[in-house]
Computed example of a mutant assay.
Amino acid sequence: MAEKHGSAADSIVVAQAKTDGAREAADEIARQLASAKLAMVTVFVSPFYDPEIFIAELSRRMPDTPIFGCTTAGELSPGGWDEDSVVAMGFNAADFVIAARPLLDLATFRVDRGRSICTELQQEFAQCTEQCDPADESFGLLFIDGMCQREETIMSAIYASLGDIPIVGGSAGDGLRFEKSWVFHNGKAYTDAAVVILIRTRLPFRLFKCDHFEPTATKMVVTDADIERRIVKEINAEPAALEYSRAVGLSDSKLELFSFAAHPLLVRVGGAYYARSIQRTNADGSLQFFCAIDEGMVLTVARERDPIDATNEMLQEITNDLGEISVFIGFECVLRRLDVEQHQLSREMSELYRRNNVIGFQTYGEQYRSMHVNQTLTGVAIGKRAIAPQ
């Protein structure tokens, strides 16, 4: 049992539960958030709990509060990295106005349908925020089924519809099982779905993206791929797993999730590099990716920086820019965690997150503005209000 972090007057109240059952976890989260008037609650739920029972029970206990969220591959809690828990954030109604829509049946998702839904969402959001101060600003959160392989299509539809509202988010996880992940909306748990939340706030905020990789001079080209399924069959006209192993200096017999975590590939988009991580080697020697790939895509072998230094620099830069931070809402790739664990830096990273109040979950992929990326920490830092709300 965990105590809530912050008072009802805080802009964001953080709660955590570590109990044996989903109902007990829902009880605990509802109890910790009961005293605040909330615009919404986000919940990040370990696959240790039954997601359908948990969200139904929490919604029953908080019937007047919109609740959104997803299952995780690990939780970013008030104490740092965690597992087998529920982490929740209550957004104070004095500081936030929200509107949200689910996107269902992603397997048959069409961009024009997504644009239509997001246009409706933006119209509702405009009505909800008519009374807001013109100086208030907006951002969006996206939670999406991490097994759907549709993140890029969804992001394309959203960005075509929401104009200048920037989006960050994460792909729901399932521990390290990679079998089924869930998102939450309106008291129910959905697979093959996403939820888009638009948020307007009086508080200062900054979106962020952090990884610890630099490009090397080693380049490769995807020469044969199953684009729909994110499978690379050939790189440089050679079997993909063999050519990847050669490029990063590994034996192909040693390829596993930890290998891919330590040796991601980068793509260059708009002058910046973004990580493209591999999920597994298939029996035919092809590589299954977490992100979209395409024939002709140039992949750059990455070189690692110290992950603690890179993350600390980013957190300090935002703190210096924004002033005192209420919370860093974070979406962190599970492969980033595995890589840090391999370097035996788990304790240091967890402590860094604890000190800076990084709250969120570990993902199967991260969203940052128009991009879907891997092996990255993305999110939004929320500053503190100058004066208490009236």
Rank of each mutant, 00 (worst) to 15 (best):
I197S: 01
I55T: 09
L38V: 01
R305T: 05
R113W: 07
K209Y: 12
Q390T: 08
V267K: 08
L106K: 06
D284S: 09
R268Y: 04
T201R: 08
D192T: 03
A157Y: 01
R385V: 08
A9C: 09
Y190H: 15
A247R: 11
A73V: 06
D145Q: 11
I359A: 08
A30D: 03
E83F: 06
R246D: 10
Q390W: 10
K384S: 09
L377H: 06
E179R: 13
E341M: 12
R280D: 13
T119I: 00
C210R: 10
A225V: 06
D164R: 13
A261F: 05
A15Y: 01
F44N: 11
S286L: 02
A8L: 11
N374I: 00
Q32T: 11
S259T: 08
G173L: 01
L335K: 07
T108G: 09
S46A: 07
M371A: 05
I117M: 00
D321V: 04
P264E: 03
L335Q: 13
I382R: 12
Q123A: 14
T201P: 08
L250R: 09
D339F: 00
L242H: 13
I154E: 01
V298N: 07
F44W: 10
R268M: 12
S161Q: 06
V43L: 05
T311C: 12
R115E: 15
S346Q: 12
L198R: 01
Q344D: 10
W182M: 10
A272N: 09
I199V: 15
R177K: 15
T376N: 10
T191M: 11
D133C: 11
T223V: 10
G330P: 03
V380H: 05
D105C: 05
F205S: 09
L255S: 06
S326I: 02
I67C: 10
L265F: 06
A39M: 02
D226L: 08
L58F: 06
E341Q: 14
A302W: 06
C291H: 08
A56E: 15
I231A: 02
G270N: 12
R60F: 11
C118H: 02
I197H: 01
P204Q: 08
Q390P: 15
